[in-house]
Design a protein around this nucleic acid. Structure first.
Lengths: 224, 224
DNA sequence: CTATCAATTATCCAAATGCATAATAAGGCC
DNA sequence: GGCCTTATTATGCATTTGGATAATTGATAG
């Protein structure tokens, strides 16, 4: 009567943690927080539920780890192209904006993930810290790129400019994630470059659109 | 042994529905979606859990009703000052932006509520419809205000301008909700007016800041 | 004052959930 | 090849949740 035990083989701690985190993100993206039960996570990760407690103190800690993983990945994706971007400050800023408004940063699942985790941010102090860190890191990076622009030699308040530009990017990111079919390919980037350029009094469209081709191509590779 | 039954008096259908919706919103704002259990909602509304099923088909329908209530309230708040705003198109746009970036629209609980409901939007078709309606309604209103501006007589694509301005407002709204302590009083409005003005090539700051006083006063009254 | 109706409460239930603990086997070491 | 560690599975449990149904009571009409 006793059914056979599930066969398995042992994996690295890192492998298992990663599998559990990936499964958590996938489930949350598909069906919201309520879909990410310990049993569902374990099944999607190809293990049994008990193993979660073996690698994490509890479900909450796994959720927090998944959130950190997501945010790290998103900020890394936004800054990825920056390393191979030219030294011209204007072009660098344009590349940054373009990357933040293209896949894989702009992604239908990303918004749900972000929104789902946002509420947890208010209860769990660890998640709140992750939130504040990644959020301000992004804005600081943007502010630093803006400060490097030759056009505005301390003319205006760089903090407020960064806040405004960050708002444009965030807002467009949201729209692009929520209503992807409402925008033509590259339209979001163009709107973003024009808006940020207008706020800063600098023309970014030329620079940005030139980089868009390689940016999009690179992202296509990542997407598949 | 049998404890006394809870005394009660009958209320209007509208009163009870409203009480349940208010309780739902309060709970979600406090502790996220998971805090809004039927029992908790009923307790906060001063009734017993069974009554929820008497006025709503189920918990999901109550959640959807609460979401609709929230979105209706927020869009109404954004457009409230518009009715008593001057006829000057520039001033009207400035008033609209200022209202969207001031309390009660900008509110710490509003962001959590919005984020929490966003994920439900993906499962429940009714909620998705509410989402699309309120979202596009806001953007259409903004686009119509922009189109009335004398400065850009069909010069540029009004749709893209509206998208960009909407993004600024959304992004600043998020920042203001998430990190209210990071902005001085009226700073968010000023940043928003400057950014929107820059995108549209029109000066809004003068108009907007002049209106800010009455706007803020009016909102203070609403807040209490 | 009484009968009636439905608004409201009370009780029960099946399912799901997170967690704890016991059982087992996979893989490395000697 | 046998043993030992522990990664992994299997089982059980208390709690919670949403929903169904029965019991009761407050109001209203006649």
């Amino acid at each position: 009567m006793s059914a056979d035990r599930k066969p398995y083989h042992r994996e690295t701690e890192d492998t298992r943690r990663q599998a559990l985190i990936t499964a958590t993100l996938a489930l949350v993206a598909e069906g919201g927080a309520q879909a990410a039960t310990v049993r569902a996570i374990a099944q999607k990760a190809g293990v049994t539920a008990g193993l979660i407690r073996h690698y994490f103190q509890g479900k909450d800690q796994l959720i927090a780890a998944a959130y950190g993983h997501l945010m790290t990945r998103m900020t890394a994706d936004s800054a990825a192209d920056l390393s191979k971007a030219p030294h011209d400050p204007t072009a660098r800023l344009a590349a940054f904006v373009a990357a933040a408004l293209s896949p894989p940063v702009v992604d239908g699942q990303a918004l749900i993930l972000w929104a789902t985790f946002l509420q947890e941010t208010h209860r769990d102090p660890a998640m709140r810290q992750t939130h504040a860190q990644t959020y301000l890191a992004f804005r600081d990076q943007l502010q630093s790129l803006i400060a490097d622009l030759p056009a505005l030699k301390g003319a205006q308040d760089p903090r407020r400019l960064a806040i405004a530009c960050n708002a444009v990017i965030d807002g467009l990111w949201m729209e692009g994630c929520a209503l992807p079919e409402a925008f033509a390919l590259g339209e979001l980037v163009e709107i973003g470059l024009r808006a940020v350029g207008a706020i800063l009094g600098t023309d970014l469209s030329g620079q940005g659109m030139r980089d868009l081709a390689q940016t999009t191509d690179a992202n296509k590779k990542v997407k598949t």
